[in-house]
């Protein structure tokens, strides 16, 4: 547990030192939001309806950027090998990395949601916005666990920029569907009490993948690498 916290603080410190990198992920999410708005046309009504989808796609696209970057520094300094050699468990290493990635993606949430509110003139109160950000966080957690597992593998490859989204995107279809639906229900009102089942599904995905990926991580990274 203490090694987990040490690793996590190391990752977060790294994130802070490289804040230009984290900011570029944020900027990328904002650009995605803009591009989708241009693609869907200036009609505010259409944009408002598409808001959940646009938000989740912005999260999805920026997640690959963040995840691809997350192992780059380690690879460059051969620091992962150093960590693997040290007596920290690979499982702790995974949870630290995944948490750092989830936190980075979470931190995009408030900004992107706020921008969507402004751009699409959504008339929502603070409570609804908080719920949207909460759903964003759950989605981010769902992407971070399998994303970190796959990024650990693909970061060794020359074609990692292709490989990671190719593997990750079909896998996170449940996250995509559940968050889009849940966000839509939060925005338009939950007449038939469906929000709960989507939340359950999202949570189930998060729990399953956070545990399974933690178990599998040691096979993805070479021990004596």
């Amino acid at each position: 547990m203490s090694s987990l916290l040490a690793l996590l603080s190391k990752d977060l410190l790294l994130e802070w030192r490289e804040r230009a990198r984290s900011l570029s992920v944020l900027l990328f999410a904002v650009v995605t939001l803009l591009l989708f708005s241009f693609a869907l046309g200036p009609d505010v009504e259409t944009l408002r309806e598409a808001t959940p989808g646009v938000l989740v796609l912005a999260l999805l696209l920026s997640s690959t950027l963040a995840l691809n970057e997350s192992f780059r520094l380690e690879r460059e300094d051969r620091a992962l090998e150093g960590l693997v050699m040290r007596p920290v468990s690979l499982t702790a290493l995974f949870y630290a990395k995944a948490s750092a990635n989830a936190l980075l993606l979470t931190f995009l949430g408030p900004v992107v949601v706020a921008l969507a509110v402004v751009f699409y003139s959504l008339e929502i109160d603070v409570a609804t916005m908080t719920r949207l950000v909460g759903l964003w966080c759950l989605g981010a957690a769902g992407l971070a666990a399998p994303g970190t597992l796959y990024a650990a593998m693909t970061s060794r490859l020359k074609s990692q920029d292709v490989a990671l989204p190719l593997l990750l995107f079909p896998l996170v279809v449940p996250v995509l569907l559940a968050s889009v639906k849940a966000m839509g229900l939060v925005l338009t009102g939950d007449a038939m009490n469906q929000l709960r089942s989507w939340l359950t599904l999202l949570l189930a995905f998060d729990i399953i993948y956070w545990s399974v990926c933690g178990l599998l991580f040691r096979f993805a990274v070479e021990e004596g690498e």
């Binding site: 597992l149 796959y150 593998m153 593997l167 399953i208 399974v212 990926c213 599998l216 096979f219």
Partner: peptide
Amino acid sequence: AVATVVAFID
């Protein structure tokens, strides 16, 4: 094997 397990659970 890792990818197969992850995909199958999905």
